[in-house]
Design a protein around this nucleic acid. Structure first.
Lengths: 204, 204, 204, 204
DNA sequence: TATGAATGAGTGTTCATTCAT
DNA sequence: TATGAATGAACACTCATTCAT
């Protein structure tokens, strides 16, 4: 008798095993055999459920992205309906526990490298990059003129990713508090420019 | 008679071939054969000069890092001896043409992913991460109190890396001008805090 | 309560699915999964009814041979009780619709290749080869001396198989009419030798 | 130092190993490992020289076809310039020792089965089928009217293939003498029709 | 120094077969 | 009787590395 939901259970189990294996050995050191070993099932079943290794990485990344977006929605809903609070919520979502644990961070790094050469992954990556930017834009535009808002969004998006990146590369537990402080300070600085607009001659 | 410098010539030639191959196929798609093909030499010679594939990536990354540090030193020397100018010089070095071309950007991404699992690469990566931070710190400390300076350095380092990362991931030519503007604006904002220090209650 | 004849129904269904799958993908491209898919049943049931893939091919081939023999008997009974008519009937049976459709032709070709290495199939193939020869012999012996009759039977058997083979290999619908004409002409030529026996010095 | 002709030597060696392996285990039982074993070299080298298993079978079949065509040319040149002698030469070429040994016969059978589903092999097979027919046609047309010549060619081509096929399927050494006698007798019968043309109403 | 032929372990993937339900 | 999830051995193919020349 086929268990209802067996397919989803297995897929979740395999995605988890993939994250573990990438954590241990990196993507290049992750084989269907290591994934199967972590999941304590046979190798054949991995290809059976995901159609191959590529499908497995894609599914894993979709899972990670889903968690990120879910965290973003959740935190935004919980925040006061005000730009500063909303921006802080978005920032916090990017440093959510679902995003700053070792398996996920290593998977992100591998994903970026692969996305440069795999169309399917590239598409996922672009959607995510744009989503963060447009989320930030939406808030900044409430208080800043268009061009300045877009620049602010670019800056904050970059700062978020940069903080995340540098935190990930340490190899040590992510210092969420420090990252939040730097990012939130940046938000404050950007919002302050509202009052006394900058000269705009700063670009080299 | 072995030509003087033959070894260095070959190594430079192979490093260049490696960058090309990574540009074309990514690190996972790069084999000693593809590198040899790009360099128009035999496969055996690669292992001979670098001891293997790992040595090749390490050497390639050392080369890229060397270019970055060289650009940093050059631009700092050319800058006025003043924090703002020096900071701008450091920022510009990170967006130097030697760092924002496709082969190098893809190699950086691959390097980060690999550095999480290869001690040799990890060491390289740490040195670089710290070097940027301490360079920035040195300038900020001239005008900001210790803690604030370190925070500013962390922020600017993250922004630089984040701008670089988001630029690299587009897959299109890097928009240096836009990146410089965002980063330099951030410098200005950070330096302005000197006058009216922030309250420090911004962290969540 | 198991339905009476369920077993035979399933077997017929699976044999048909096997022929379809071989038609589509060849024997080497036919798996128990493709057979099950064509029969719209589960994979496990195939092994259950035939004990495995080998048993399936054997049963399929027995089915095809049964059709051939059945056609031979039917057409011989319908023919006048006279050597020429009987021989024509045997020829026609070998080009019966049950033998010259794409699924069956491709299965025959695969069967021949496999029969060289599988004792069970080899036995089937030998029985069939000999049956055709002895059927032809029986008729020729009514009008030709023993040695000549056997030689005539060998020739006609080979011509039948050769016409069938070349027709099968075209990949297009089998031209039964043309094959019949060539074979029947050969029968006529062979029977004419009765009057003016050949010299027998023709062999090299 | 690369030996001149190493490539051709290896290819010949591997083709021979393939024929041996097919003789032993059939095409379906032939793997790159069994071929490598027969050639006493490593498995990787097979794919290296032929690009894969498909390339290996194609090359092997090209080799067999080359032998057949070479035998045909050789024997035709040696024959008297007269239709009957030429036809006998063509027949004999098809039963040449290069074509009636066990490894080659089993390879032919496998080739036919595969050619139904592999375009590359199908093309080879068609060329060969047509070549025999047109070679025979060329001779028959010297002494028979067009339509009769083509029919004679079809008949003889089929008889040749049929004799070859039935001889191959026995699994015992090919009885070349018997095959030649039957085929040559058929040639004689066909050429005799020149004098007293047949009625043409023989087709069913 | 330089070659590239050769190796053989390792990879993703397929598939006949088994078995709990 | 029937299912299809699961197994695990087998496969073609890749590739870093070695080594005779």
């Amino acid at each position: 008798m086929p268990k209802i939901g067996m397919r989803d259970l297995r897929r979740a189990q395999l995605i988890d095993a993939t994250l573990q294996s990438i954590d241990e050995s990196g993507l290049s050191g992750t084989t269907l055999a290591t994934v199967a070993q972590h999941a304590k099932i046979s190798t054949g079943i991995v290809s059976h459920y995901f159609g191959g290794k590529d499908g497995l990485l894609e599914a894993t990344m979709r899972h990670v992205l889903h968690d990120l977006w879910e965290a973003t929605v959740r935190r935004r809903l919980a925040a006061k309906d005000e730009p500063r609070a909303r921006l802080r919520a978005i920032v916090a979502a990017n440093f959510d526990v679902s995003q700053v644990n070792a398996p996920v961070m290593k998977t992100w790094l591998a994903f970026w490298a692969e996305s440069m050469h795999q169309p399917v992954l590239r598409r996922l990556q672009r959607v995510n990059t744009r989503r963060l930017h447009s989320n930030l834009c939406a808030e900044f535009e409430k208080v800043l003129p268009g061009a300045a808002a877009r620049r602010a969004a670019s800056g904050l998006a970059a700062l978020i990713d940069g903080l995340w990146l540098r935190g990930a590369l340490t190899g040590e537990p992510f210092d969420t508090k420090a990252a939040l402080r730097v990012a939130n300070d940046y938000i404050d600085l950007l919002l302050e420019t509202r009052a006394k607009p900058r000269s705009g001659k700063s670009a080299k």
